[in-house]
Nucleic acid binder design. Structure first.
Lengths: 338, 338
DNA sequence: CGTTCTACGTAAATCGTTTTAGGTCGCCTT
DNA sequence: AAGGCGACCTAAAACGATTTACGTAGAACG
């Protein structure tokens, strides 16, 4: 039941453990091994079914042969996003042949992030991607030693490398588009999570409206971060007599709820009310009418974050370039043309 | 830069490494440590910022203190499902205080599953949940040693413990419901993946229709496993003049595409055509009209799978009870009442 | 023949923890 | 005072792999 060790291989090949290890590691370095011996060892390894023990390797310190990275996200992160992030990372990882990359995942309650540095020191993993951190995590992030291999996902920072998107710019653009359509008032549906990304979008919208000459008024409505949230927010709005004509939803989920509510209230989209979402999730193409939204390249971003993290782990001294993706609106049928 | 070891703690507390370890492990066992010494060690550990090294622990063999489990799924698994599975597992894990459970994830191309046994022997992880395996994985699964800690997710098997749902029964029930509504023909939209779950649903439907006295005819249409697939399948159907009146979609994604297509073709749901989905994903409540679907408790199932796996790892000899969840239809607005 | 290479291997230390099989010391019995 | 017993603590051996520094031949060289 106990698995074969390198010692077993050595015995079977009738060589020392050192020799076996040398062969198995393909070390072309200072030590030479004859072809005959090499063959013997390789065959022996094959025969006994040798699998190198990770724990032993890690303990001994094999920086670079196998790397374990972790993705951490707050518990209340939306399932769709999790899937996309992981998919992006996995796709990237499987293109890498050396070193072998293992992926761990972990959730935490906002503001109660486990000590990443400790986990790295414990060699639980070699580095981490902090995804969708909230404002409660800021203190932690700032207290962290820049030497610990961390990449921030969907958030920018002076102190750490990050991969994010131009949420501010996207906010501006959303506001600009709808302003151009001549609305008197813009209603912004904001998911009530304290993520930097969401806040930047809000800032972008507000910034644009403040700086435009004849900008429409606007109101910010905070709602829970899911379909129900958007649905109820809009229902309340309509019931209180305030019929929105332009709805900027800072999440597709919320937009979908909103769309459903508008339909329930007999309001036509986009004739009575234009709607625009954020994220360009898969389903947005198939809502009725299909949802205009901001395309957020989550998979790409995640892959880049993973790549940066690996660089940082493998070449700690090398400086990393953070990334901010430009964002563009995908026009579909919930907004009017022009 | 190198992190403090237990040796540092011992030195700081002026005791032996053994003592430090004993204290740090709270071993109430055969060995006793005075309160004074215990305090000293604890404080020393605190002061030097001691973090036990996982690799060393694993190597030494500490079965039970920390357990690492892995979830493996085929690369083409839908992002939404991934998120739900992980969420379910994570939620469960965080209720467990002892042992500490770490989670790894890994994807593979159908039929190219990495050697789980090897990974366990390499102590990369202690056991795995095989999620959404396809038929191409059957051979691998059957070749696996039943002693390696594996739990099958959404698939049944004679050989391994599993958590799945009564997909066959759900298929029957879907067919029964729509048959009762007096359709002449049932159109089944089947995602073209070779998963047991999907197949069981088909079998259930076919079984019911074959055994019912005055059953409607039916046709099976295979389509890609996403919204576009459902959309295009229905468009083709309608364009070729075959207007479906009852659409059994074996996935919500496909159903959403179908719904959109029906709308495009000017067919009213449920008046002209009834639609029923499968999975009860979040968005189904907010399609227009809201989608009737089969509720699949993914999170619960995932949590149970994780729990079973932990049992198997912690108490290898103990026999496990596999689980098959009953499934029920959630009636919303794409099906007629009664 | 003595010296120096070269080519091929190996002994042994090391990584950080856990655990077993003993110490040691003082006190209590008889 | 010899023996026994608790209470407290520690030495040392694992766990499995990697790597450095050091053999040992035989060949080549002068």
């Amino acid at each position: 039941m106990t698995s074969p060790t390198i010692r077993d291989v050595a015995k079977a090949a009738n060589v020392s453990v050192a020799t076996a290890s040398l062969v198995l590691n393909q070390k072309a370095g200072s030590v030479q091994i004859s072809v005959r011996t090499r063959e013997r060892v390789l065959q022996a390894a094959q025969e006994v079914g040798y699998v190198p023990n990770m724990a032993a390797r890690r303990l001994r310190g094999n920086a670079g042969r196998t790397v374990t990275i972790a993705v951490l996200w707050p518990v209340d992160t939306r399932v769709g996003l999790i899937g996309r992030i992981l998919t992006g990372i996995q796709e990237h990882i499987r293109t890498i042949s050396e070193p072998r990359v293992e992926l761990m995942v972990e959730t935490y309650e906002s503001g109660r992030l486990r000590d990443v540095r400790g986990l790295v020191e414990a060699s639980t993993f070699n580095g981490a991607i902090l995804a969708n951190t909230t404002r409660e995590d800021d203190a932690y992030i700032h207290s962290l030693d820049p030497a610990v291999p961390v990449v921030l996902f969907h958030r920018h920072s002076q102190k750490y490398p990050y991969v994010t998107a131009d949420n501010f710019g996207a906010g501006c653009e959303m506001a600009r588009q709808l302003t151009a359509h001549g609305h008197e008032q813009l209603t912004v549906l904001v998911p009530d999570v304290s993520s930097q990304a969401i806040q930047d979008r809000v800032h972008g919208i507000v910034h644009f409206l403040h700086s435009a000459p004849d900008a429409p008024r606007h109101s910010l409505i905070y709602c829970p971060f899911h379909e129900v949230g958007g649905y109820e927010a809009v229902m309340q709005l309509v019931q209180s007599g305030l019929r929105p004509t332009a709805l900027l939803c800072l999440s597709d989920q919320v937009a979908m709820g909103a769309l459903c509510a508008l339909n329930t209230c007999g309001m036509k989209v986009p004739e009575h009310c234009e709607v625009i979402g954020f994220d360009n999730q898969e389903f947005t193409q198939f809502t009725v009418p299909s949802l205009s939204t901001v395309d957020l390249p989550v998979e790409t971003m995640a892959a880049q974050a993973a790549d940066m993290l690996l660089q940082k782990i493998l070449h700690p001294s090398q400086e990393l370039m953070s990334i901010e993706h430009p964002l563009r609106i995908v026009h579909r049928d919930t907004t009017r043309q022009g």
